[in-house]
């Protein structure tokens, strides 16, 4: 938990996060996020008060464990319905600008 206190919220951190999240932020947005990040992280640090030693995380329990399906084939969706929403498509493929491959 000591990590939280060490977090240094600055424009560089915000920029790294934005890059991971594929968000292209403006200078103003970056500045705004720096101050709001600080507020919000400061606020959630209230959780440090809670002793969670030996407390299991909540996601481990579920009321409906092991829901599985049999290996049966179901009908697929017509290709044209899938492609109807596509920004660009050709010959049944989704088309995008070329993925950059270094050699």
């Amino acid at each position: 938990m000591s990590k939280k206190d060490e977090v240094k919220v600055d424009e560089q951190l915000v920029e790294e996060i934005a890059s991971l999240a594929r968000l292209d932020l403006t200078k103003e947005e970056r500045e705004m996020f720096v101050s709001q990040f600080k507020d919000i992280l400061d606020y959630v640090s209230i959780l440090n008060e809670v002793n969670t030693e030996d407390v299991p995380p909540a996601y481990l329990s579920s009321a409906n464990n092991s829901a599985m399906r049999e290996d049966d084939i179901e009908e697929s969706v017509p290709t044209k319905e899938f492609l109807a929403n596509a920004p660009q498509a050709k010959d049944d493929y989704i088309v995008i600008p070329r993925v950059h491959i270094e050699q």
């Binding site: 938990m1 990590k3 939280k4 959630v44 959780l47 969670t52 407390v55 299991p56 909540a58």
Partner: peptide, 21 residues
């Protein structure tokens, strides 16, 4: 993205899931 990123996962996401319990 920040809360899940390496180095902060335990302090934020995991901690939250424990308090959720």
């Amino acid at each position: 993205t920040f809360a899940l990123s390496a180095g902060y996962y335990d302090a934020y996401y995991l901690k939250a899931q424990k308090v959720r319990t």
